[in-house]
């Protein structure tokens, strides 16, 4: 682990990159903004460019250095030295350590221990910090917002900015009582972060970006895309098409269908915005409801509202996707 003084030396001629993984509404972008505001030198924060929806996995990036020219680039961040994961449910869904430098730090809001985390992400060459941010958030803030708390974890393992500087940034951004609570939560987080140091620090002078990774080799080339740019439904050309996005992980609830009560009236099928109501044609030549496609259902609950016989109910998911609350618009369209 590097001390604040050592990091200051590193930052004179190098860039430190951070990446935050969160879900839409959890404040990942706000966390990365606060890094830039708390840092004494030059910094840039970029959200993952695109439209962001509540509950969908989000990423945001931070580039910090004392050298203005080094952070002047508007390139995206490919090789983070620190990755912070605000929501443990992302661990199974996203490759959170992609590009993370050897000896870099992975900070996760989780109750798992550090060795378990190394196993989940399949990396032995990184340091791990864990913190039960959800509990601290509920205790101190009274609601499950972990974005500022995770910053406490970062200060603990890589003090690129001081607690006081972060507190100042928070006071500029949030109003009185909210700011005070967040600062208290951060102080508790610094205390409670569990550190699993493998004794290796990242080499900040090495550029670990994979050449041409921004070109996404493996997807179809210009010679292979269909005429007029059409994505034909029966082909699997667009491997990142929306049908393959696990929108099911965005929601707060599992929707449950009761076959006994269902009258096959199909009102839920009409109202579902995600085609997540599964129907099949029976031997009688009629369409019958067969269940709910949990991979795509993001629990908007329209079906529950519209069902005339209460054949659909909901159950709160285990895990923190349920903590999403609206905040500053991120991404946008």
């Amino acid at each position: 682990m590097l001390t604040a003084e050592q990091l200051k030396e590193v930052l004179k001629e190098n860039v430190i990159n951070l990446r935050f993984h969160a879900r839409g509404g959890q404040g990942g972008v706000t966390a990365s903004n606060l890094c830039v505001e708390a840092f004494y030198g030059y910094g840039v924060c970029q959200p993952m460019f695109g439209a962001e929806r509540m509950g969908s996995p989000t990423e945001s990036y931070v580039r910090l250095s004392a050298n203005d020219d080094l952070v002047r680039t508007n390139e995206q961040v490919y090789a983070p030295h620190v990755v912070a994961v605000l929501d443990p449910s992302l661990l199974g869904e996203i490759d959170v350590t992609a590009g993370l430098a050897k000896g870099g730090w992975l900070i996760v809001n989780t109750v798992l221990n550090q060795e378990e985390i190394q196993g989940v992400v399949g990396r032995k060459d990184i340091n791990v910090g864990t913190i039960d941010a959800t509990r601290i958030a509920l205790d101190v803030l009274g609601r499950n917002i972990t974005n500022t708390i995770i910053l406490g974890g970062i200060i603990r393992v890589m003090p690129i900015f001081s607690t006081d500087a972060l507190a100042d940034a928070i006071m500029r951004r949030f109003k009185g009582e909210v700011a005070a609570k967040n600062i208290a939560a951060i102080k508790q987080a610094i205390e409670e972060t569990c550190v699993y140091d493998i004794g290796l620090d990242p080499d900040f002078t090495i550029d670990t970006k994979v050449p041409w990774q921004q070109v996404f080799l493996g997807l179809p080339g210009y010679k292979e895309v269909d005429k007029a740019g059409v994505w034909y439904c029966d082909e699997d050309v667009i491997e990142i098409g929306s049908g393959q996005v696990n929108t099911g992980s965005w929601g707060e609830y599992d929707m449950i269908w009761d076959e006994e009560k269902c009258t096959d009236c199909a009102q839920c099928w009409f109202i579902c915005p995600d085609f997540a109501i599964i129907r099949e044609k029976g031997e009688d030549g009629l369409w019958h409801m067969k269940g709910i496609d949990q991979f795509h259902c993001k629990s908007c609950q329209n079906c529950l509202e519209v069902c005339p016989v209460d054949a659909i109910s909901k159950k709160l998911k285990q895990g923190p996707a349920s903590c999403a609350v609206p905040e500053d618009q991120e991404g946008g369209s």
């Binding site: 050449p211 041409w212 921004q214 070109v215 996404f216 080799l217 493996g218 997807l219 179809p220 080339g221 210009y222 010679k223 292979e224």
Partner: peptide, 15 residues
């Protein structure tokens, strides 16, 4: 520059 020619190839770039 920086466009895929095929799945495994970048147009006019030796990669």
């Amino acid at each position: 520059l920086g466009v895929r020619e095929t799945k495994g190839n970048i147009y006019e770039v030796d990669y």
